[in-house]
Nucleic acid binder design. Sequence first.
DNA 1: AATGAATGAGCTTTCATTCAT
DNA 2: CATGAATGAAAGCTCATTCAT
Lengths: 191, 191, 191, 191
Amino acid sequence: MARQRKMDMEELMEATENLLLEKGYEGFHFKALSENLNVARSTIYEYYKNKDELITDYMNILMEQVMRRIRSLADQPSSFLMLKELLILFMEYSQVYEMIKMRPSLDQNASPHVKEQLSKLDAQSRELFQILLVEIEKAKNEGSIRKDLPTSLIAGVFFNTVLIQNTDQIPPREWADLLFSLIEDGIKPKN
Amino acid sequence: MARQRKMDMEELMEATENLLLEKGYEGFHFKALSENLNVARSTIYEYYKNKDELITDYMNILMEQVMRRIRSLADQPSSFLMLKELLILFMEYSQVYEMIKMRPSLDQNASPHVKEQLSKLDAQSRELFQILLVEIEKAKNEGSIRKDLPTSLIAGVFFNTVLIQNTDQIPPREWADLLFSLIEDGIKPKN
Amino acid sequence: MARQRKMDMEELMEATENLLLEKGYEGFHFKALSENLNVARSTIYEYYKNKDELITDYMNILMEQVMRRIRSLADQPSSFLMLKELLILFMEYSQVYEMIKMRPSLDQNASPHVKEQLSKLDAQSRELFQILLVEIEKAKNEGSIRKDLPTSLIAGVFFNTVLIQNTDQIPPREWADLLFSLIEDGIKPKN
Amino acid sequence: MARQRKMDMEELMEATENLLLEKGYEGFHFKALSENLNVARSTIYEYYKNKDELITDYMNILMEQVMRRIRSLADQPSSFLMLKELLILFMEYSQVYEMIKMRPSLDQNASPHVKEQLSKLDAQSRELFQILLVEIEKAKNEGSIRKDLPTSLIAGVFFNTVLIQNTDQIPPREWADLLFSLIEDGIKPKN
DNA sequence: AATGAATGAGCTTTCATTCAT
DNA sequence: CATGAATGAAAGCTCATTCAT
């Protein structure tokens, strides 16, 4: 099998994710990445022709994973419960929204291959948003969500609140319940 | 051809803000900045010894402005109303939270002067958080906020929801009211 | 006038020419170029965004110069004499044909700007060839050139023989006369 | 998956020649070579320790082949006819002159082994030139070549004109005759 | 003050070369 | 033999920063 393999795709993707979250697109360097992985910088180029191809590949893999999870969520008793499941999923995959915010930076000097990857990515983002928007609308019709709140605002709450830092180290499940409770009933006491 | 264009501090700060928001700390370059301002790159060095000093200076100015506004808010009839005013202020100054998230990047190779600027900044951030946390606690005691929600979660909601993109272009005042209504009462219909 | 100017466009073009002739397109590096010019590598980037832009710019300048000279040659008493003048010119500018041979290498990853420069260049090359071919045809009709030799062969002789190394260091004018004499009458003694 | 494709020396030499002619010494890379041959890059190292050894080996093989052909040409009725045969041979092996022009690039960091190969090569080049020069001198003495033309110029014509692109796709034999006719009698009509 | 010019540091990328299987 | 994997050296390029006017 030739020289001992040092690079591990899983590790590469993990390191890519961490570095992206920490430094953002502009601060993402193969130098730091290779140091994290303990391989030579050039080794990464054996797998990815450049930064953008690695990043878009990572994003697509992430998105596919999330979409697979979302599709496996289908058939909840109600849209309201579906939304709760989505929120929990978004918390687990809070990188997704960070990546979506990073997306515009990738347009500059996108090579044809990168462009292709980006359009796949965009398609999946659109699908993700679509699902969320549809579920919110359905829940409004179900009568389980207020109709006076714009759907875009509610969707925004879903994406943004999952980024809240859990500084008190509350257990994830409990944190999710608290967050959903806040979104559901607000901060005002019940009566 | 000397002195073609005077530097204007206001413009400099504005351009700094825009570039920081658009590209993040790692993507903030004097090159782009000077192009936006239509001055020579070297001209900026007449005012700031380097990148980090400009950025920390901008951040401090921003923070001072916000803190001044917050202090002018004091003496609301209730903590609950105070929190509403704070949310409106955070919406107006949504850059603030973006800057706070950018803060850690500034630690690397911070010169003594930058370190000093950073500690001023940290002091102001701490004060800002403190005010928010105190008001939330007071509101809990007032009985106008549920006690079962962790204060850190509520504070997080205050910072994060102001970043929601107003994609539907709803007028700012109305958007603020809708957002506060959501935070106050949740998405569930009253019944 | 700011820091003392070290780069001189004339020198830059000259060094570019020399390096291109010596190493060819693939062996042309900014490193060697900057060493020849005694400036930092990055300094060259202040003038040219990259290798290809410098090279195509150089080639266009060269071509324009040659075409200007050619146009100033017009109105010779006969096409035959015109061809002699052209040969002398080609000897003086023997780089031109070397550059034309290098031309195809420039197509890979040509940026839009480079593509534009290349199409200008191609237009001038075409014009140059055209002039040569037309003069050869006219000379054939004048009866001063054999009609049994393909025009392309004669044109080829004009371009290729100017590249013969003058190893014996014969004075240019004399060398040109000898070369033209060979082309005119061949190597066989008159009888 | 070992041993998928056997290396074939003939193919290797052919690919080496093509790549050298297309890209020149500086643009000759094992990467492209291995892709052309459809073998792993590292496989070439089983046969040649490095780039330069492959190139000098190829050049020596080429030169030997040419010299063998030249030796088999000996004993023409006259030096003039010998020169015609040589021209035809040079047309068939027009790579030879391209390689000779490439020769100087090989001096940089030549390893001992490469240096040895180069000196063999140089010996053969010298012999080749020698033969050509001697035949020209003999033909001058025979009275079949003008004595007023420097031998070096005539030799140069032999090497350079074989590089003329046959753009009109004239059959090789015919092209050779036309070229020799031009060299012999010049472009001027007979009377 | 403002600028044009130059530069070094550091990242991106390519490629020859090595090595274990 | 042939290969896949890893790597260092060197080129490509960008940008913060300095400096003389």
